[in-house]
């Protein structure tokens, strides 16, 4: 049985070396967990698929599931704490430091240059996701309508997601019934 503190430390290591998003974490999970023999290679795709199917942060979801597979509920708590606590401490220190320097003229100039590039760092992943994921014209329509409603009509994204979830469930149920009638 894998000790809980080792699960915690391993996910703390993975969490603190993951810069960017959850997908950057996958090779690290392989290296740290599969090589130690705690999980097998075949279990990794399952972990990714399940992490994607639940709402929330992908990296955290993968830790919850991987921890659960290793040691049940306790393992998932240890893995979650491990993947959250390092970034929590690092960002908290930065936040406390930054509030003292927010009005420093050098910091102001640096952030004046950073702000416009951050906008493109949100825009570009969206373009890449659209090109990869939007395979039908209908998907492009959904993307365009939700962009328009949130950016220009000030709709809350939560209502849009709720309406889509309900519509999708109805649609799928009707389609299922039709195909079973045939």
């Amino acid at each position: 049985m894998v000790p809980l503190w080792q699960i915690f430390l391993t996910f703390a290591k993975i969490g603190s070396f993951t810069i960017g998003g959850g997908y950057a974490m996958i090779p690290l999970i392989r290296q740290e967990i599969v090589k130690k023999g705690w999980l097998s290679d075949d279990e990794i795709p399952d972990i990714i698929a399940l992490a994607q199917s639940a709402p929330g942060i992908l990296a955290v979801n993968m830790s919850i599931f991987a921890g659960y597979k290793m040691r049940g509920f306790k393992g998932s708590v240890a893995a979650t704490l491990g993947s959250v606590i390092p970034s929590f401490i690092i960002i908290l220190l930065i936040a406390m430091l930054f509030t003292g320097y927010q009005d420093n003229p050098v910091v102001v100039r640096i952030f004046k240059g950073i702000r416009p590039v951050v906008v493109s760092l949100i825009l570009v992943p969206m373009i890449n996701m659209a090109r990869k994921g939007n395979k039908t014209w209908w998907a492009w329509v959904i993307s365009a309508i939700s962009l328009f409603l949130v950016a220009f009509m000030k709709f809350s994204p939560i209502y849009i997601l709720m309406v889509l979830i309900v519509t999708a469930i109805c649609f799928t149920l009707i389609k299922e019934r039709r195909s079973s009638d045939d």
């Binding site: 199917s53 906008v119 493109s120 949100i122 825009l123 992943p125 969206m126 996701m129 659209a130 994921g133 939007n134 209908w138 998907a139 492009w140 959904i142 993307s143 365009a144 309508i145 939700s146 962009l147 328009f148 409603l149 949130v150 950016a151 220009f152 994204p157 849009i160 997601l161 889509l164 979830i165 519509t167 999708a168 469930i169 649609f171 799928t172 389609k175």
Partner: peptide, 20 residues
Amino acid sequence: GVMGWLRPAVVGLIGAAAVI
């Protein structure tokens, strides 16, 4: 089915974040 509808909406939401 639900994910098929949500994925393109999420693309739009991220685009909206950039536009805002």
